[in-house]
């Protein structure tokens, strides 16, 4: 009896998560005539690749993907590099105000991008950085830092202090101790953070919408959502959905490969309080 309700609940949960995905997937393989039928048809009737072919032909999906990859990967790499240094300082060098710094990072991270977007826009305009990858890489790096520093400093904090002290006693400088001892040990946590940072950058919208005004510089999120804006009377829904699903594929792959890491990273805070 208890089992019965459990499985009903589980099925409802799966339906909740997957129904929208199912419906979109279904329609991405249907010709426009089917997608536009009213009432909608919830099961497959026809099958076509035309939407997937169309989305590459009609919009520069390829360059959107490249743009997104460049900015997301760069920002993630920089955030990891400088974030791990700061996390090390907070966890192992321990200085006055280290916890204040950490809290400040976290709180600043909660300010909506909209509250600072214009000054950034003005700044990038002044330095001719609009429509330049840097205009996204730099703020994305900043946006990734709080999570990076937080997760890594917690992780470094759990590495026994003796390891670092032994390295110092053996004559290493602080920096040597950091990259020879602490950093290699931090690789599991760093890869977790890297995944979370990458997903956050890949998904970013408002800054990309504002700083990349040229069509060929758009990132994938803006690119897909702007398709709908172009054709104001007939939305090419099939193509939009196909594009959306193509963008989703890498994320789903990441999820399947690294789900344990993602969950541990996401939940690091919830458990500790």
């Amino acid at each position: 009896m208890k089992k019965f309700f459990l499985y009903v609940g589980v099925i409802l949960m799966i339906f909740f998560c997957l129904f929208p995905i199912y419906f979109l997937l279904l329609n991405s393989f249907e010709p426009t005539s089917v997608s536009y039928s009213s009432p909608p048809i919830l099961y497959p009737v026809a099958f076509t690749f035309s939407n997937y072919i169309g989305v590459f032909k009609d919009i520069s999906l390829g360059s959107y993907i490249v743009n997104s990859l460049i900015v997301s990967l760069s920002a993630t790499a920089i955030a990891l590099l400088i974030g791990s240094m700061a996390a090390f300082a907070i966890a192992k060098i321990k200085f006055k105000g280290s916890s204040t710094l950490l809290n400040l990072l976290l709180i600043l991270g909660f300010f909506p991008a909209a509250t600072m977007i214009f000054p950034l826009y003005e700044m990038f305009a002044k330095f001719h950085l609009l429509n330049n990858y840097l205009s996204l890489i730099l703020p994305y790096t900043t946006m990734s830092i709080p999570l990076t520093v937080w997760v890594l400093s917690t992780y470094f904090g759990q590495i026994p202090g003796e390891l670092y002290e032994a390295a110092r006693v053996d004559g290493m400088s602080r920096f040597q101790a950091f990259y020879k001892i602490i950093l290699p040990l931090g690789i599991p946590a760093a890869s977790t953070v890297a995944i979370l940072d990458f997903i956050a950058c890949w998904n970013e919208f408002i800054l990309a919408l504002t700083f990349m005004t040229k069509e060929n510089m758009r990132t994938i999120t803006v690119g897909i959502s702007m398709i709908s804006g172009r054709f104001s009377y007939q939305y090419p829904w099939g193509e939009i959905i196909a594009g959306a699903l193509i963008v989703t594929v890498p994320l789903v792959v990441i999820i399947f490969v690294a789900q344990e890491k993602i969950i541990s990273g996401l939940t690091a805070g919830a458990v500790k309080g």
Binding site: N203, I220, V247
Partner: peptide, 18 residues
């Protein structure tokens, strides 16, 4: 993890259709 990982802008596009 799928709904969480989807870009909000893109999932909003999907919802607009739905």
């Amino acid at each position: 993890l799928i709904p969480w990982a989807l870009p909000t802008a893109i999932m909003a596009t999907g919802w607009k259709f739905m």
